[in-house]
Amino acid sequence: MTVSPDLDRRFRDAAVSLDLVDVGFDVVDSPIGALFVAASGRGLAAISFESDPDEQLERLARLAGPRVLRSPRSVDPARRELDEYFEGERHAFDLSLDLRGLPPFTLSVLNELARVPYGQTTTYGALAAKVGRPRAARAVGTVMNRNRIPIVLPCHRVVGSAGDLTGYAGGLDRKLTLLELEGAR
């Protein structure tokens, strides 16, 4: 017995309107490929270049609770801002973020990262210095690599001290595309 798309959608919408969902997610189209996007009641919880949700669901359930449900509505605000960003119309995101469970060092690095302006780049070492740990460039690199909310937390704006792209969890092509979009390359 196949559940019709209409019935399926009605259930998912009702679940969100009744506030019964710990984390809602959906796959959002973008110029750099399909993005897995998830939001909790606290805010945006994840963006992943791995658009197959399977691996994400368990992690989100551990983070925010087992009521993880695909629901386009719960990521509508993020979808809208991402669309505007990719159209070049938005230079800063107004989304609240769900960063629960992250250790203090990671939080302070992400906090500094969020201040790196649109269209500019910084280095791992400069970020490390900003959080008072000038020798921790490598640890900052690890934080970038594990960034749960790329694009919105702009780890693509962090490059090597020689200006080289260095690395990106979504692949260097995507990093370059984002920097070009912002006019930083």
Partner: peptide, 17 residues
């Protein structure tokens, strides 16, 4: 306990039937 999405996908057809 599986994420609800998995539980829902696994049982929705049988529930509807």
């Amino acid at each position: 306990i599986p994420p609800f999405e998995r539980f829902y996908e696994q049982h929705r057809s049988e529930v509807l039937r």
